[in-house]
Write a protein that binds this DNA or RNA. Structure first.
Lengths: 225, 225
DNA sequence: GCATGAATATGAAAATTCTGGTGGTAGAGG
DNA sequence: CCTCTACCACCAGAATTTTCATATTCATGC
């Protein structure tokens, strides 16, 4: 899941970036509206987060430009609790959601999940290498063989599959799978990676969970297999 | 948690009521703005859900009235994807959140949870009879004695304590504790009620979990104890 | 009152998840 | 090259949760 943050206040932008990355999103930041628009129009993002108040092109104008290019990317608008005019303009700009500053991270994450879900990014199986994960039954399939995953194993595997080769830190996996307010520890991830490796091997999958010291885990197809 | 739904379309109103009740809220419905305002001003609700489009007093007007009485009850406004004027009016009416129809139940429940949480309905212990549940540690205390609850036991106990003597069906408990999209079965509730009864007895609590055949469970103080 | 069936309670095993510990390994710094 | 340390893999046991089977209770009609 790729998110573009367009925000000129560097401090906020960077803390958003780190919060979102901690929650397993891939994040890019543009520090002004013009750059933001340019990036956004690449059409590679799953969500845009736009600050309204920016020098030059403001959030509404960016949103309008993006919509005029017929991009349906969901837009989350960050507004200050401000005057009416600002907000009137927003109503027609094509934003999907408004979050009034200050907001806390729970609210933001809830919004993002709602928007991404509403977007209907619905698939029923994730495929990688010679292996696929059936999202309705939680069964991992490779050729003739298959194995059922437990709930937790499923969540971890799904998250890895959604991120393909992109590296995920243990902290990221913890916050997305166990929840950002749980008190699970990194060893949980290590243990479940162990479970998954065993199950992947048991069905002869060529998918490997690689670990990169200090950086986390990611998937890889093992060609020698 | 008491919710007031103000909605003139009877069909929608009733389906909201049933959805919310299934999720453990106590729900009252007013079928027009005037009645809605009257109810709302009782100040007994934890959340108001107002439809914008209603004959007579519309949602915005109700919201404004309620706010003018200095009631801080969070307001969730249901809007149709409609014209600008409607929404401009809403901006100042004091609503906390807008949900555009059609919405699905996940969205609605997510909103509600966010609003209730934001409201900071934070307490750190729930007390009933001679017994209290420490919400930070999950320890159930009665006099000198205490016992730690597991995560699941804690969730069930908290939900029961929040509802006091009000009866909760097994389905309700399932949807609130296990999640409305889990596939847990009613026996889970029975098993956990069993666990909790044992723990309550072990600390000499006078709190009883009564079961009412076909209707569910609720708490009661056992005076003979 | 008694038989019946549905609902609830309970016990015990199975499955899953969590916990803490041990040992191995890669990489940094000497 | 060696040591040291942080990090990772793995194991075994504990705790929790789920599952299933069986027992008990209760309302109801007969």
């Amino acid at each position: 899941m790729k998110i573009l943050v367009v925000e000129d206040e560097k401090l906020l932008a960077d803390s958003l970036k780190s919060l979102l990355e901690k929650n397993g999103f891939e994040v890019e930041v543009a520090y002004d509206g013009e750059t933001g628009e340019e990036y956004a129009e690449l059409g590679v993002y799953d969500l845009l987060i736009l600050d309204v108040m920016m020098p030059g092109l403001n959030g509404y104008q960016v949103a309008r430009q993006v919509r005029s290019k017929h991009l349906a990317t969901p837009i989350l608008m960050l507004t200050a609790k401000s005057g009416l005019e600002d907000r009137i303009e927003g109503l027609n700009s094509g934003a999907d959601y408004y979050l009034t500053k200050p907001f806390n991270s729970r609210e933001l994450l809830a919004c993002i999940n709602a928007l991404l879900r509403r977007q209907g990014n619905q698939v029923d199986e994730l495929v990688y290498g010679n292996t696929s994960l059936d999202l309705s039954s939680g069964i991992l399939v490779c050729g003739e063989k298959s194995v059922r995953l437990s709930a937790r194993e499923f969540d971890v595997m799904r998250f890895l599959l959604q991120s393909k080769e992109r590296n995920l830190s243990k902290e990221t996996i913890l916050s997305r799978v166990w929840g950002y307010d749980s008190n699970a520890v990194e060893n949980h991830v290590e243990v479940y990676v162990g479970f998954l490796r065993k199950k992947l091997k048991s069905i002869g999958s060529n998918v490997k969970i690689e670990s990169i010291r200090r950086l986390g885990y990611h998937l890889e197809v093992d060609e020698t297999c």
